[in-house]
Each structure stands twice: as structure tokens, then as C-alpha cells.
Write a protein that binds this DNA or RNA. Structure first.
Length: 641
DNA sequence: GCCAGCGAT
DNA sequence: GGATCGCTGGC
């Protein structure tokens, strides 16, 4: 029954049009043919330790942080071990459990983290380091990008075709162990190769014509977990193109997961669906080491079984508010609430967004971003600390931690540099102060420490600084070192990715370090001249930089000099051979933008309100008035009412 | 630009 | 619960 064929038409046609197919090509978020994947490493920290220690997969293992567990591998879960219990209880449940403490920095031992067998007894002098996991995360991300690029090549026999970097770039690092990938453009290419008949009609005149029906009657889903179809759908119906693209997406994701396994021995789970929300829910359906496909015809059935509080952005106060307003947590029951009813309890924008999201409509973009936007180093104190002296010691560790990570990020080579430094401080409540990082200085550990100390003094001067239960230092507002043009940061990220991909043969040396403890005293080998060229003098030796391996700037010496070209539209410097691709990218982006504008009216943006480029400023201040006088300070400013 | 707060893993 | 990250909103 799912073939809404025009009865007057004797030939079966697809439910989809050439316009929608083009949407796939250009990464439109509105096309029903879109395919997004969410890939999630299984019990990530635990896997990192398994790989580092060479533990067999069947061995139960948990990662501990002080007295609690922060990751439990799948072999340990049948014993009833979860993050809710402590080390003692875990040992009781599973005497053979391997308990590995996270790496730590230690007061007085410079900025080097290490795995120490006594860290759990030194909560007062040690600070957790997540560096080993960040390093693994980067390697995995790189492997995923390579796998995507490889797919583009394999599927693309024609060598004259554009390079595939662009296709691999639609990858968003959502957290240390998760990524979203918008597979649409990659699938589009594959689709046209496998079904050349689709090429004929791609030209303008018949954009709204129906596509032909796929020449397949049954799809081979291999090892995928398929979510059951909606009530009135049946597997007997022939597949349409939205099923075919999902199958291709599934093949791509499998190849990515296989690459991660083959090269790095990590398993991951994945979800595929027509948007981020669906993909994200899907990836956790079948863990570990499986992928779940939510076809369009299965979306209602799929979502109907969830509590809406499990949907992205509804896990917090917003979700609670909705629950109490409508007396249910179930998606299936909230479906019975009309948009008007939603509007009685939520502001218009949130209501529209919610109405769509529980029906499977989510047009948020996969943000092609792999770079970090801020870095934070923190410590909770139990018991609280009471003096400037004590706090000072921690500032040293924070500065060393952050400096090490900045080095990894390329401060020395001047790829990126933070503009702001912030100190957070908690007594009864949180307070924070921030100041700009002087542009004239070379960023080094000392500078970070001095700035932090200044901030701490300010906070102390503000009063009520002790006892302090939490302290954290962070750097943010990163700017790109080379082009100095931050207005187009979105594109610069892609540029960086493209560069990274073009150097896949030379991965970051620092990322092989997880199997060893950080080298004790390896000195950084600075590439002298180039650095001062931008920010003054090169820093001193990076004492205590965690992983001690120098990193080559992409533009470094032994590379052939590549002719550069400055894009007149975004002023970005791209290599000559990337020019064509770059122009294509603008073109595609323009089309996608057009597309978005066309469909904007019907698609509310994510809550709570606002959208960076909301041209038609929805300045609606109409939230005022009524009740709720008892909102605590600073709490719950969401636009309910 | 500064700071607080929310949501997420 | 602890340590991170990203983002928005109010001034």
C-alpha cells in the first residue's frame, strides 16, 4: 500500500522526485532521502584500556576514577556491574574484574600524566587526565575519515573525478566517543553509479518529475539490525529509493566500522536514519558492535516506543517540564496532543519543534567540525580547600594540562590559539572570571599559570573564596593562526580537514602513544624560525608536555610547496589543486541554503529558540508576566509559561 | 565581551 | 558523581 502510484499511470513510479534526489547530492536537510549515521564507540574508556593493556575481549574490565567506576566493558556487565556501584561492590560481584584507574597528573611531578597503581589513594594530590582517551579518539576519527575517503575512491573508478575529501568532510565529532556523519553526498555518488538510469533526468526541466522505481525487489541487509516497519507497512512492498539509500549508507558505515576494528581493534555501534535524532537513538539499540537501520517506513513504530525524555535535548529540564505539563513521558501519548495544546504550555517555537521531533522530523545539520572549541581542566575538592596556597598548586597542574593539550592542538605551529582564559570557582555557588590572552605573548605554561593566578586573585578579592569545593581553568575562543579570518570559521574547519586528509600518509606522531607511559624527558624539537614569524619567540622547552613528540605543521619544510589560491568569496587560502573542489563546495552550499530557505517556513529550528542567522529576527519578547515567581536565581529561563 | 546556566556523555 | 565539551541568553 505504500505505492501512491498515480492510477492513471500504468508505470510504477517512485514516491520521490528528482528535486529530492538533488537534495541528497547537496546535503539538504529537508529531503526525505537524507541519510545520517551516528557512530558510538562501545564503552569507550574501557576499550581504550583493553587495547592499551592487551586484555582479551572476554575479560571483564572496568575503568575507575577514585572510588567510582566510569566505564564498564561488555564482558563485565553480565555480573551486574554498572556505573552506579563502587569499587568494593564491583569486586564482590566479580572477583576477577580488572580494575584500571585512569591516568593522573600528580602534584610536583610536572605536567606529565601517568598510569599509577596508587592514584586511587591520592585523590588529594592527583588530577585525572583524559589525554590517553583523547589521543585514541583522534586516531579513530582519522581512521573513519580515511575509510570514508576510501569508499569514495573505490566507488569512483574515474580518476578524473574530484578528490573525495569533500565527501568525507561531513563528519561531526559529537563527543570523545561519538560522531555524526551526513552520508548524503557520498550516497548520491554511489547511487548514480549503481543506477545510471537516475542520471538522465537530473537536469532542470523535470525537477519535480517522479523518479523511476528502483529495479530491485529485495535488499540484502547483511548483518544490520532492522527496526520493524510501521503498523500499516509491509516488507512485501518493493523498496523505494529511501530504502536503497539507507542500504548504501549501511554499507558505508559497515566499511567504516570495519576499518576501525581492523586498524585499531575498537568496536563501535551505529545507527542510521534520515536525521540526527533518529540515528542517535538507533545507535544505542543494539550494542555492542552492531548497527541499526531505521528506515523511513519504520520511524513511527520506532519512536512510538520511546520516552521523549530520551530524545536529544529533552533529557533535562525541558523534558521534565513537558512531562509534568502533559502528564506523560511517552512519545506515543504525546502524539495525541495537538499543536495548539502544546502551545498552551510551551512557547510557539518550542511547541513547533516538539511537535515535529516526536514525529521524526529533525532538520538539524551535521556540523562538519572535528576541532575542539574550548579546553578545560578541573578538580573537585573533597574536602574543600581553604587557602590560596593550595589553590595555587592546582593552577600549576591546570596550566600544565592545558598547555600540553594546546601543543597537541598546534599552538606551537600556530595553527590555532585561544583568545580567552577563564577560571571557575565554586564555594556555595559558582563564580567565574575571564580575561583575554594577550596576543603579543607566546602561549606557554608560565603564561597560562600567571593569567590563572591573576584570575584567582580577582576572585579572592571579590570575597567569599573559601572553602572552595571546585576549581577549573579553561581556554576558549580559538582563532585560526594562519588566515586570521574568523568570520568564516565554518569553512576553515573544512579546509583543515581537507589538509588533514591530504596528508593521511603522515598521521600525527603523537597518537601512537597510548601503549606507553608518556616519555619522561623527551625534549621538544622546535621548528625555530616559523613560529616567531607569527607570535614572537618560540617557547622554551615544553617541560612536562604529556606526550612529548613534536608535531609537524602541515606546511612544514619537507613538503613540496603547493601553489596557493585565495577564494574571492571567503578569502580562504586553498591550494591550487583544491580550487575546483572549493568552488564546488560554495556552489553546493548555496544550493543547500536555497533549499533551506524554501523549507524554512515549515521547519522550526531546535529549541530553546534562536538560530544564529535568523534573518527575520524572532525577537518575540512575549514571555513576560505570569507567575512562577519562585524560580531560583538564574534557573529555568526557558520560554515556558 | 563577560558570565551564568543548560544539556550531554 | 566527576570531568569535559558545546551552546544560548542576559546584560
Amino acid at each position: 500500500m505504500s505505492e501512491p502510484t498515480d492510477p492513471s499511470d500504468s508505470v510504477k513510479v517512485s514516491r520521490f522526485t528528482y528535486r529530492q534526489l538533488q537534495g541528497l547530492r547537496h546535503g539538504s536537510t529537508a529531503t526525505p532521502l537524507r541519510v545520517v549515521a551516528h557512530i558510538d564507540l562501545d564503552a569507550f574508556y574501557a576499550q581504550c584500556e583493553m587495547v592499551r593493556l592487551g586484555t582479551p575481549r572476554e575479560t571483564p574490565l572496568a575503568v575507575r576514577q577514585w572510588d567510582s567506576l566510569i566505564a564498564i566493558n561488555y564482558a563485565a556487565r553480565p555480573f551486574g556491574i554498572s556505573r552506579l556501584i563502587n569499587v568494593t561492590e564491583a569486586r564482590k560481584l566479580c572477583p576477577d574484574l580488572v580494575l584500571q584507574h585512569v591516568a593522573t597528573f600528580r602534584e610536583g611531578e610536572g605536567g606529565r600524566w601517568a598510569y599509577r597503581d596508587d592514584s586511587f589513594r591520592n585523590i588529594s594530590t592527583d588530577k585525572v587526565s583524559l589525554d590517553p582517551y583523547r589521543a585514541q579518539s583522534r586516531k579513530i576519527l582519522q581512521t573513519m575519515k580515511e575509510a570514508l575517503a576510501a569508499w569514495a575512491v573505490d566507488e569512483n573508478e574515474n580518476e578524473n573525478e574530484h578528490p573525495k575529501q569533500e565527501l568525507a568532510a561531513g563528519l561531526e565529532k559529537a563527543s570523545i566517543d561519538e560522531v555524526f556523519i551526513d552520508l548524503s553526498p557520498l550516497i548520491y555518488k554511489t547511487l548514480l553509479q549503481r543506477y545510471p538510469e537516475l542520471q538522465s533526468g537530473t537536469q532542470d526541466e523535470n525537477r519535480d518529475a517522479d523518479l523511476p522505481i528502483p529495479p530491485t525487489t529485495a535488499l540484502q541487509w547483511d548483518t544490520d539490525c532492522l527496526v520493524d516497519l510501521d503498523k500499516h507497512e509491509t516488507e512485501e512492498d518493493d523498496p523505494d529509493w529511501d530504502d536503497v539509500v539507507m542500504l548504501i549508507g549501511s554499507e558505508i558505515v559497515r566499511s567504516v566500522r570495519n576499518a576501525v576494528w581492523d586498524k585499531l581493534s575498537y568496536t563501535c555501534s551505529a545507527g542510521l536514519g534520515r536525521n540526527k535524532m533518529i540515528a542517535k537513538l538507533g545507535s544505542s539499540c543494539n550494542k555492542p558492535n552492531l548497527q541499526t537501520v531505521v528506515r523511513n517506513r519504520a520511524v513511527q513504530n520506532f519512536l512510538g516506543g520511546y520516552k521523549f525524555t530520551q530524545i536529544r535535548m529533552l533529557g533535562g529540564k525541558l523534558g521534565d517540564q513537558i512531562t509534568s505539563s502533559f502528564g506523560t513521558e511517552k512519545v506515543s501519548e504525546l502524539l495525541n496532543v495537538s499543536l495548539e495544546q502544546l502551545r498552551t504550555k510551551l512557547d510557539d517555537h518550542t511547541a513547533s519543534w516538539l511537535y515535529g521531533i516526536i514525529r521524526g522530523d529533525d532538520r538539524s545539520e551535521v556540523n562538519p567540525r572535528t576541532q575542539i572549541k574550548s579546553m578545560l581542566s578541573a578538580k573537585s575538592f573533597r574536602p574543600s580547600i581553604n587557602s590560596l596556597d593550595q589553590a595555587d598548586k592546582w593552577l600549576h597542574i591546570f596550566a600544565a594540562d592545558i598547555y600540553g593539550r594546546l601543543v597537541e592542538d598546534g599552538v606551537l605551529e600556530n595553527r590555532r590559539r585561544p583568545r580567552v582564559i577563564t577560571l571557575h570557582h565554586r564555594t556555595a555557588q559558582f563564580r567565574s572570571r575571564q580575561i583575554p590572552i594577550p596576543k603579543s605573548n607566546t602561549i606557554d605554561e608560565e603564561l597560562l599559570y600567571d593569567l590563572a593566578k591573576t584570575l584567582l586573585r580577582q576572585i579572592v578579592a571579590d570575597g567569599q573564596a573559601w572553602p572552595c569545593s571546585n576549581l577549573s581553568l579553561s581556554v576558549s575562543s580559538f582563532e585560526d593562526g594562519v588566515s586570521n579570518n574568523k568570520a568564516i570559521e565554518g569553512f576553515l574547519v573544512r579546509g583543515d580537514q581537507a589538509k588533514a586528509l591530504s596528508h593521511v600518509a603522515r598521521p600525527r606522531a603523537t597518537e601512537n602513544a597510548i601503549n606507553e607511559q608518556p616519555p619522561a624527558d623527551k625534549k621538544r624539537r622546535l621548528d625555530g624560525g616559523r613560529i616567531k614569524q607569527f607570535f614572537g619567540n618560540p617557547s622554551e622547552d615544553a617541560v612536562g608536555e604529556p606526550q612529548g613528540v613534536p608535531q609537524q605543521p602541515f606546511t612544514d619544510s619537507e613538503d613540496v610547496t603547493i601553489p596557493k589560491y585565495t577564494c574571492p568569496r571567503c578569502l580562504t587560502l586553498v591550494s591550487e589543486y583544491e580550487k575546483e573542489e572549493h568552488d564546488d563546495w560554495h556552489f553546493a552550499k548555496d544550493l543547500a541554503q536555497q533549499d533551506r530557505e524554501e523549507s524554512r517556513a515549515s521547519q522550526p529550528l531546535p529549541p530553546p529558540k534562536s538560530n544564529p542567522r535568523g534573518a527575520a529576527a524572532r525577537g518575540r519578547g512575549s514571555r513576560g508576566g505570569s507567575t512562577r515567581g519562585k524560580t531560583e536565581k538564574g534557573q529555568m529561563r526557558l520560554a515556558f509559561q
